[in-house]
């Protein structure tokens, strides 16, 4: 059952990204371009997602264990450390340069654009470098 959930959830996510506009780097940059020709659409993507998750996560995480599975693999750290902030800020720089974050970069492989493959391969290399060069924390590996 968890395998069926994984693939159905993935299909929904990929379709949702395509519908939302997130698959276009130009649309992402338009959203980040506050002082230019600002396109606020992508705030509606996060808003739409949060309308659902703020309610559903609250209800689901009250359960002693998942409906389909043994235990919740949810991050349990609450401290704010430098790695969280520096890593996220680094991600933001790359996001602004390419207009792609991980979900859209993977989904867009469907459209066979060589530029997406270049970005995807570099992203995989970036993850590998970080995992290889920096000490990993067990919890952050589960986190996201």
């Amino acid at each position: 059952m968890t395998k069926v959930i994984a693939i159905v959830s993935g299909i929904l996510f990929g379709y949702g990204l395509a519908l939302s506009g997130m698959l276009s780097p130009a649309k992402v940059i338009g959203f980040l371009d506050l002082t230019g020709d600002w396109d606020p659409s992508l705030a509606f993507v996060m808003g739409g997602g949060l309308i659902v998750t703020v309610i559903s996560f609250r209800l689901l995480l009250r359960l002693p264990h998942p409906l389909f599975g043994d235990k919740f693999q949810v991050p349990n750290r609450t401290d704010l450390d430098k790695r969280l902030i520096a890593g996220s800020a680094t991600f933001g720089i790359g996001w602004a340069l390419g207009g792609l974050c991980p979900g859209p970069a993977i989904s867009s492989l469907a459209y066979a654009d060589p530029r997406i493959f270049i970005f995807f391969a570099s992203m995989v290399a970036g993850i590998w470098l970080a995992k290889t060069l920096l000490p990993q924390r067990a919890q952050s590996a589960v986190a996201n």
Binding site: G87, A89, S122, M123, I127, L134, N144
Partner: peptide, 28 residues
């Protein structure tokens, strides 16, 4: 795109998440 991909990959690994993990699930 190579530079951007490296930064996105390393940054999300170090920062333990991206737009989906932090933005939609974490905030959720």
């Amino acid at each position: 795109l190579v530079l951007a991909g490296l930064l996105v990959g390393a940054g999300t690994n170090i920062g333990a998440g991206c737009t989906s993990g932090h933005g939609i699930c974490g905030l959720g």
